[in-house]
C-alpha cells in the first residue's frame, strides 16, 4: 500500500509538471500580454506533432527538444505581431481570435498528421523502469518531474535577476507605469508571447512520450492549463507551479480512489478555490 501511494505520488507530480509547463506559458502570456490564449492546447499539440516528426527524421529526441520550442515560439511571435497586437485591451476579441486559431491549428494538424493515435517512445536513455530495491518506477516520468522543477527555479531566477525579467514583472504589475519607466510593453509582450507558446511546444515534446497524441487533445490540454492557472492565480509563476501540483495530486489520487469522479473532483476543486479565494490561491486582485 505504501509503495502504491508512493508510485501514485510520483505519477501525479510528473503529470503536474507537464501541466506546469503549459500553465506557466499561459500565465506569463496573461500577465504580460493580458491575453487568455485559448489556442494554448493547440500549440501544445503542434509541439508534440513537430517533436514526433523531427524526432523521427533527425533521430534525436534531444535535438527535437531544443528545436521544437523555437519553432513553436516563432509561430507564437508571428501570431502576437500580426493577429493580437492590434487587439490590445479588447479581451473578448482576443479570446475569439485564439479560439479560431486553435480550430485552425487543430484541423491543419489532423489534415497533415492524420487522425490516428500516435505515440512517441521515450528516448533510449530514459526508456524502461528504474529498480530501487523492490520499488520499480519508469525513468521517463522522473525526467519530466526533474525538468519541471528545474524550469520553475530557472524561470524564477530569470524573472528576479535579469533585466528582461524585471521588465516582465513591471508590465505584469502595471503596464501604464512600466511604459512611463521607459519599458516598451509591446516588445515585452511580443517576447513573452513567444516564450509562452514555446513553453507549450516544449510541453508537447515532453508530454508526448507520457501521454498519447490524438485529435481532441488540444481542447483537453487548454482546459487543464486554464484550470491550473485559475486555481493558482493568474499571472504568477508560483501560482502556476503550486496550482499544477494541486491539480496533479487531486487528479492522480482522485483517479486512484474515486476514478469515476476524477474530472468532477477537479472542477469541484476549482469551484471551491474560487469561492473561497476568488483571485486564486496565490493570485492578486486584478485592477
Amino acid at each position: 500500500m505504501l509503495l502504491l501511494l508512493l508510485t501514485q505520488l510520483l505519477n501525479s507530480l510528473a503529470f503536474a509538471m507537464l501541466l506546469f509547463l503549459l500553465a506557466l506559458g499561459l500565465s506569463l502570456i496573461f500577465g504580460v500580454a493580458r491575453v487568455v490564449n485559448l489556442a494554448h492546447g493547440a500549440f501544445y499539440l503542434l509541439g508534440a506533432y513537430l517533436g514526433l516528426a523531427l524526432g523521427a527524421s533527425l533521430g534525436s529526441f534531444w535535438l527535437a527538444l531544443v528545436l521544437v520550442p523555437l519553432l513553436v515560439g516563432l509561430l507564437g511571435v508571428l501570431v502576437e505581431r500580426f493577429l493580437l497586437r492590434g487587439l490590445h485591451g479588447r479581451e473578448l476579441e482576443q479570446v475569439l481570435v485564439t479560439i479560431g486559431l486553435g480550430f485552425i491549428l487543430a484541423d491543419l494538424l489532423r489534415a497533415f498528421f492524420g487522425a490516428a493515435i500516435r505515440s512517441v517512445p521515450p528516448p533510449a536513455e530514459l526508456a524502461g523502469p528504474l529498480f530501487l530495491g523492490s520499488f520499480i518506477y519508469p525513468k521517463y516520468p522522473l525526467f519530466v518531474l526533474a525538468m519541471g522543477v528545474l524550469l520553475f527555479l530557472l524561470v524564477r531566477l530569470l524573472l528576479a535577476r535579469t533585466p528582461f525579467g524585471v521588465q516582465v514583472r513591471a508590465v505584469t504589475a502595471d503596464p501604464g507605469m512600466a511604459s512611463t519607466l521607459g519599458i516598451q510593453p509591446a516588445r515585452v509582450s511580443l517576447l513573452t508571447f513567444g516564450i509562452g507558446t514555446a513553453l507549450a511546444g516544449l510541453g508537447g515534446v515532453v508530454g508526448a512520450p507520457m501521454i498519447a497524441l490524438a485529435p481532441g487533445l488540444d481542447a483537453q490540454m487548454t482546459l487543464f492549463a486554464l484550470i491550473v492557472v485559475v486555481i493558482g492565480g493568474l499571472g504568477r509563476i508560483e501560482g502556476a507551479f503550486w496550482g499544477a501540483i494541486l491539480v496533479g495530486l487531486v487528479d492522480g489520487f482522485g483517479r486512484l480512489f474515486l476514478p469515476q469522479l476524477a474530472m468532477f473532483l477537479i472542477f469541484a476543486l476549482m469551484a471551491l478555490v474560487l469561492a473561497l479565494k476568488p483571485e486564486g490561491l496565490l493570485g492578486r486582485r486584478m485592477a
Partner: peptide, 19 residues
C-alpha cells in the same frame, strides 16, 4: 474499475492493478 473517457494518464489504474 471504471475510468473516465479521454484520460491522459493511467498510472493510477496501473497502481490499483498492481496492488
Amino acid at each position: 474499475l471504471y475510468t473516465p473517457l479521454g484520460s491522459t494518464d493511467y498510472s493510477a489504474v496501473i497502481s490499483r492493478i498492481a496492488a
